[in-house]
Design a protein around this nucleic acid. Structure first.
Lengths: 245, 245
DNA sequence: TCAATGCGTATGTCCGGACAATCTGACTAC
DNA sequence: GTAGTCAGATTGTCCGGACATACGCATTGA
């Protein structure tokens, strides 16, 4: 079979990116079957009228994504297993939306509080200084699913309650021009207190899935600290991860 | 301050790798302070007697690791935040060892069983075919910490009980020439059954942290399926993750 | 005073070529 | 028949250069 590949030099989209997208689409679509060889880089470059470094850059990006595997002396082949996505820094809202559910959000608290020692340490601000606090309840199919408590540095974002209910916090941050860079997460479990149980329509002592996260932008500022509790019967963390070579 | 950088052209270690390692060490050591500019690539290349693509390759690898941030028109600077490691496919054994603890392992079961539908689906083998089963109890400071149940395809590995107690499963796989590539994970929580509770010295109904994982090698074969339960008072999943640009 | 413009600087993209390292498979020698 | 050897194929590394693009800042203009 011959793979239809072409690049548009008039497009502002980088050539290597055009190529990697077409290859990824072909893998996704099944045109490039798992295990099949991709054909050597030099010939592929010649066929497309590109240079080898450009082709290599395209292939490399897919290798980084885990879709391709290179073998010296053999060639580049499509990975057999079904790689979906290698763990992104995704918000619960996006996760649910991607799963086809229509998540609902109920903002319980949207205010400014004085930072406790824990919050101050996480966000890197002075203890006692003002921080935004947002408490939300995330529902799916009318059932409570997770209780989210977040703290943000002051003057970072305009936290409109209506907007918080219509979209996710991360989406609002990105829209405000904040470049999310990395996050430090901790996932655990514990028994629900009576207060937590009531919020999530569980019973006191029921197991809860917990997640704490501090998110940093590309300048190294902490832009968000969150403590979340999930109902384990309704939610679990699913992700694919790659081995760093 | 002047950063000491040099490369050895006689070494079989790639030049870009030598450079990236030195830069990483300088960041780790604090010689390159967070937020500081790295100096433009062209001059850096000239100073080291390297070409710009080589220098770029070194820098790019650190950008991928989350240690550096590039800004067009500005330069490349060291990320402020404390990036430790961006979530590896690590075994519990390695995690504990890295944390300074000396993990102990007790192999409870090491046998061959007939694959149930669940196991067969995860490993991609025929239902009812033979698979290895390993059940282990992981202890730290004499206290049970996690209960690990793993299934492996037949004839993949020689599962020596003594070796399983002395090291981790992943380390044994790597030593056997298996190239780990990716894994699909699911982390959740549930209440302990009385059987599970007894194994982990908890009470029935106590919250447990659960993890399921299927690991694939670079040919796409499933090489391991594991169902783990952790005591949440003793263990939680901590990791750093990067945002895919 | 404030906004628009222009310029320098640094990274982003792309090219064409060269040699080295490694894997596969076929051939050869014992 | 088996083991060692060699050649072809393919990716890995590296070079030197060219132009495009975006950011920050100083200058200019209203």
């Amino acid at each position: 079979m011959t793979l239809e590949l072409s690049v548009d030099r008039g497009s502002p989209v980088p050539l290597y990116f055009q190529l990697s997208q077409q290859l990824e689409a072909a893998i996704e679509h099944g045109t490039l079957t798992p295990g099949s060889l991709l054909g050597n880089e030099i010939e592929l470059a010649a066929r497309l009228g590109l240079s080898r470094p450009t082709v290599r850059q395209a292939i490399q990006s897919l290798v980084d994504k885990g879709l391709l595997v290179r073998r010296r002396g053999v060639g580049t082949q499509v990975v057999h297993s079904q790689v979906k996505r290698p763990l992104e820094l995704s918000s619960l809202y996006d996760d649910l939306e991607a799963a086809g559910q229509r998540p609902a959000t109920k903002v319980l608290v949207n205010t400014v509080v004085s930072a406790t020692a824990e919050i101050a340490a996480a966000l890197g601000v002075a203890e006692g200084s003002d921080v935004h606090q947002v408490e939300r309840l995330r529902l799916a199919h009318g059932e409570p699913m997770a209780y989210l408590c977040n703290y943000l540095p002051p003057a970072l974002l305009d936290l409109d309650t209506a907007q918080l209910e219509a979209t996710g916090l991360y989406r609002m941050m990105r829209a405000a021009g904040i470049t999310l860079h990395s996050a430090r997460q901790s996932i655990g479990a514990r028994a629900a207190t009576s207060e937590e149980a009531e919020r999530l329509a569980e019973e006191a002592g029921a197991p809860l899935l917990t997640m704490q996260r501090v998110t940093f932008d590309d300048t190294g500022r902490a832009v968000e600290y969150g403590t979340h509790t999930y109902r384990p019967t309704r939610y679990s963390f699913e992700f694919q991860l790659l081995v760093r070579p």
